[in-house]
Design a protein around this nucleic acid. Structure first.
Length: 173
DNA sequence: GCCAACGTTGGC
DNA sequence: GCCAACGTTGGC
């Protein structure tokens, strides 16, 4: 019996994302080692990044995991959204570095999503390789002064970066 | 560790 | 609402 499984209407392209993490703090390998290979993306304290999580990120959306402040910086792996935006409890915790006294439980300012590791990129895709690929023109990450920690990536760019990382098709989508 | 490029804060 | 000072991000 045929069963309809499409999670979103036809012609609605799946959105893709990129998140940054400093590997010294939390690397893609760390994500692979965590129970369920799933973590809450806590601590985002930028409104635009928050809005992407709140308004854009949907269950199942694929996400590139980027290592910032690394040597070299680059894309280390792929994960996916496994829980949509919900309040970030670290904003309520006075001892947390990301504590925000202005965020109240009744009206949380800051949200987070859960992401689950899908697969590491067999070949790490370093930032200079991204910059060297003309087909990646327009990638938000490469914009001068870009500092967003959560940003959208077009499906075309997403697929290309996966291919640059030698990730076999079918790991996603 | 340096510093450019941002975002935020707060005085006015 | 302007804008200078300050803090943070993140490549190098």
């Amino acid at each position: 019996m045929l069963r309809r499984v499409a999670a979103r209407p036809p012609m609605s392209p799946r959105r893709c994302w990129l998140v940054k993490s400093e590997p010294d703090a939390f690397s893609f390998d760390d994500l692979l080692a965590v129970p369920d290979r799933t973590t809450a993306w806590e601590g985002v304290r930028n409104h635009q990044a928050r809005n992407f999580m709140r308004d854009g990120m949907r269950l199942g959306d694929p996400v590139l995991f980027y290592h910032s402040n690394a040597a070299p910086p680059g894309v280390a792996g792929v994960c996916r959204v496994v829980r949509e935006a919900y309040p970030d409890p670290t904003a309520f915790d006075p001892r947390a570095p990301s504590y925000d006294p202005k965020s109240r439980r009744e009206a949380p300012t800051w949200l987070m999503v859960d992401v689950q590791a899908v697969a590491p990129l067999p070949r790490y895709v370093a930032l200079d390789a991204l910059r060297a690929n003309p087909a990646l023109e327009g990638l938000e990450l490469l914009r001068r002064g870009s500092r967003l920690s959560v940003m959208p990536v077009t499906p075309t760019h997403f697929d290309l970066i996966c291919r640059m990382g030698a990730l076999g098709r079918g790991a996603l989508r």
